[in-house]
Design a protein around this nucleic acid. Structure first.
Lengths: 259, 259
DNA sequence: GCCTAGGTCCCGTAT
DNA sequence: ATACGGGGCCTAGGC
């Protein structure tokens, strides 16, 4: 019907909506449903929500969200991994979501379905936290204290794997240092990379691996080789990013009165 | 168009979608939009999400949710109280959500809008939640038989970790007992807590850990230390309050194994 | 306004 | 499997 859409129905009969949901669940689609329904929850706690108009979202991984008119948080939910069952009973459309451990149940009872749609979303993008690539190294270049207090950057390698370390520098005691930076958790491979750089150098160098976190095994090898781990505070680093571009975009819109 | 619906559009031009969003925001409607877009966030932290098909929800209180194919949690969001601005810029539809305190920005950049709908949800129902914290202990205080038949409560500790057990009491045989209560599955930490209370007492006391369930390892340690586990029947306990979440419908449905 | 505690927290990693 | 810590946690209540 629509590109990437499985379909959409307006004011379906409850039987139709039930079939639609069941086939969408089987087809691993994301379901969005606006309707008049009540909700019961039973598990670690229990809750009851009377009849009202809300939005129900069911994802392909079995997660369920019930959203009311307002509020960031869903009023009722079920995390991923639940089993969804759906069907008409006593003139109402029932959707039951069961979680195995801990044992929890979410029951949605529809009086009316206004709109229901299911889609297969294509979304391969990686979610990156912290400043983006370029910005990231620029920030560290400008603020080496986020790697280590008293550090001065001497050289920087822009492009990727080339046998040249991300940074070289001089620490507060005058030692030359080779720095390997990771934007996410460092593993054994990160240590190996640093180690390659270190071995390709002559003279005395300190080796620093700088990342938001590090696996136990990687830290073990790192220590054994006599290198240092420096924890990188992504959140603090993010705070260095200027708000300006955002504010400008917003301002421009305001001046021009929206679209 | 639809009952309670402000409208719906399929494959609108970005300009049309922008106008639609702006009028919906002004009209305090809930907006759901399925499209191809990227997301940037900047504030307490920062994040970047490349192009992909997702669901955007904007509520009348200014809360914003971006949901991907899977996962209970929104990949990006903005809590209630944000200012929404929207318009076309450089051939893309931009939606900016600004939070004042803390200063945070969420930027959604649409390449395509597949479906957009806005609705005024009528929902006056009260959300009732089952026994929570205080209420829970109130119930047990009033009905110690749900911990153990013949038990009488002697003392109760309201506030949290203080070296004082949840309850002390006297059992049907006249033994003094120390009772640690958990609302959800008890773990090793629960046993440790009970153990601390027991060791800080002089004289002969029975130790009782009372919870809906207990982990294998915790039960092992508990037994080894000579304490008792008492299964707490949440269902029965809940039936004591005005709101009865464990009513027939859900149970019946479960017994019958769904539709 | 700031701070604290609770949550059906959820979600990851380590054990 | 369970235990533990972090989160842009969010939210409500206290001061």
């Amino acid at each position: 019907m629509l590109c990437h859409m499985n379909g959409i129905m307006f004011y379906p009969l409850l039987e139709e909506a039930g079939d639609f949901i069941n086939s969408s669940v089987r087809g691993k689609k994301l379901i969005i449903c606006i309707g008049l329904f009540s909700v019961e929850y039973l598990g670690r706690s229990s809750s009851n929500l009377g009849l009202g108009e809300r939005v129900l979202m069911v994802k392909e991984d079995g997660s369920v969200l019930v959203h009311r008119r307002v509020g960031y948080e869903p009023v009722n939910w079920q995390p991923a991994g639940c089993i969804i069952r759906c069907g008409v009973r006593d003139g109402k459309l029932l959707l039951l979501s069961e979680r195995r451990r801990p044992k929890e149940f979410l029951k949605v009872v529809f009086d009316k379905v206004y709109l229901i749609t299911s889609t297969s979303l294509v979304d391969e993008a990686r979610f990156e936290i912290g400043p983006v690539e370029n910005e990231f190294y620029d920030l560290l270049m400008a603020h080496p204290e986020y790697i280590e207090e008293g550090l001065r950057i001497v050289s920087r390698q822009k492009s990727m794997p080339s046998g040249i370390p991300d940074f070289t520098g001089k620490d507060s005691k005058g030692n030359y240092v080779i720095i390997e930076v990771k934007r996410s958790m460092a593993g054994v491979d990160s240590v190996k990379q640093l180690d390659r750089y270190m071995k390709s150098q002559r003279g005395h160098f300190r080796g620093i691996l700088c990342a938001p976190s590090i696996t136990k095994s990687a830290l073990l090898i790192l220590k054994k080789k006599g290198y240092d781990f420096r924890r990188l505070n992504l959140k603090a680093l993010s705070s260095l990013v200027a708000f300006k571009p955002y504010e400008e975009t917003l301002d421009r819109h305001l001046e021009e009165g929206g679209s």
